[in-house]
Design a protein around this nucleic acid. Sequence first.
DNA 1: AGAATAGTGTCTTTGAGACAATATGCG
DNA 2: CGCATATTGTCTCAAAGACACTATTCT
Lengths: 305, 305
Amino acid sequence: MDGRRPDDEREFLAAYDPRAFAPIAVTVDVVALTLRGGALHLLAVRRGGPPFAGAWALPGGFVQAGQESLDEAAARELAEETGLDAGALGRVHLEQLGSYGQPDRDPRMHVVSVAYLAFAPHLPDATAGGDAAGADWLPVESLHLAGQPDAAPPRPIEQGRRTGTYGGGTGRRPPSPGDSAPGASSASAEAPAPDFAFDHDRIVADGLERARAKIEYTPLATAFLDETFTISDLRAVYEAVWGAPLHAGNFHRKVLSVPGFVESTGETGSRPGSRGGPRARLYRAGDARQLHPALLRPDHEAAVR
Amino acid sequence: MDGRRPDDEREFLAAYDPRAFAPIAVTVDVVALTLRGGALHLLAVRRGGPPFAGAWALPGGFVQAGQESLDEAAARELAEETGLDAGALGRVHLEQLGSYGQPDRDPRMHVVSVAYLAFAPHLPDATAGGDAAGADWLPVESLHLAGQPDAAPPRPIEQGRRTGTYGGGTGRRPPSPGDSAPGASSASAEAPAPDFAFDHDRIVADGLERARAKIEYTPLATAFLDETFTISDLRAVYEAVWGAPLHAGNFHRKVLSVPGFVESTGETGSRPGSRGGPRARLYRAGDARQLHPALLRPDHEAAVR
DNA sequence: AGAATAGTGTCTTTGAGACAATATGCG
DNA sequence: CGCATATTGTCTCAAAGACACTATTCT
């Protein structure tokens, strides 16, 4: 309406000499999830230098200005940390999660981070790329995450013991007051009580909630599996991501009843379940992009209220 | 792990002298939606200068480095264009939509735009803020959007005649090429067929799809209404956003059956529908943040396949 | 043999949607 | 009066979930 105000003046200048105006750095950070030994794992790197030296952080880095899109930058960073080539990356689901831009989230300067969420089939051990001191897959159930975004936080679990099934109860987590996660990030690796650098714990929490919601109404759970899989493999994905056991029979029927979710390869798996049982039939991902009707989380309505 | 590679070198420098490295500008753009006369409208501004001078664009601007978060920047930009004060802004729902960072999306330089989605009750006419030549609310049904993200594009509608119900058919819209719709208000808006500057048509399409999906499983449709409203008012929101008529009786029962969606104010509206009928009871938004069970779009499964 | 798993059948309950019916208030 | 709307009732069908059952294969 009226004449230029100071803000506009600066914007005007910025268009012609951006370096004089916009000291905001843009990075991408990736919340990469995979299944290892039946448990959901998150890719994290050890920070090699300050700030937060020694703390866990998400793999990520600066977007190369004028060179790449955000999606490309995320794929590049993920590849650097996992050693994946372009072919293997093609089997990974990568989607944008959200952007984080609090002015003080990085003590050095104003950094806007565009977070991505990745679902990958079982991947090899992580290899530290960039200036990270190390990279590793952390079991999600061991994470201490601040400010759970919604209502599906990882429940307290016993350390060390991984029976392949669940340690937790039915899922209506008690608030668990003694379960604090202060900034006391230990720099040694044995103790898995990972506090994250920056606001990465919030990004991880948001990513986990997105993952839990996304497999409800999309077939993306198959992105955690190989080309062919059994219905039980698929059920294991849902159980690992949701952290709750599912009824095998009903799940089986449900998956087959949703059009386009999976399609049969007429084959049958050679190795039955490690504890006996008939050989399961093999399926591959179908062509649906959305599940109708959706596969809703058990008891989720109660958790949300 | 190993020695620094060139990329790392640049990142390292960037941390200490960002101006030497990161010529990426960060902006926010807002997809602001409201209901006017029963139809969904989008807030747009006329660009005052190149590039894309004279074209419609989303309200937005640069994030003030070190001064504000992304959310704050979006709220500020929205307020500038709508003349809303802080109080009125409190009644507006504002959420992050996604970030857009193709290197060539702005011809001047690499600009990463963080898009926001806003739901607002009926607002006054837009007032051009910043360096815009004008601002206006455009009927969403008149927009020509490239690359519809999904399967719920606006259908053709008859202009002028707004009977309060629908002109369209059952929802499987024919493309309807010659369908123009002048916003016919302040800023020389005779020529419609709005093509947007930059990639803003894609952002708008993504925002619309997000809005259509979001009111399925959240009570955010109430954000388009005043403090109190009737069930019919609420139904009008769903019909405007989804672009399809809903069965009044079933909708009524459904809304009341979802816990926490609306709560009754014991009152009754004084003005019945303009064409007669009993006075409807008034409700206000309930305390639920998610709807269980959800209010699914009719026929959406078929549209998605 | 005993145990665990794959896959199917059955039954109950909930919810979505089609349709009908009644009451209210405007023109 | 005639019509549109608000609200409630009824009926049918799809789907989720609990439970049971059979067949298969490992230890």
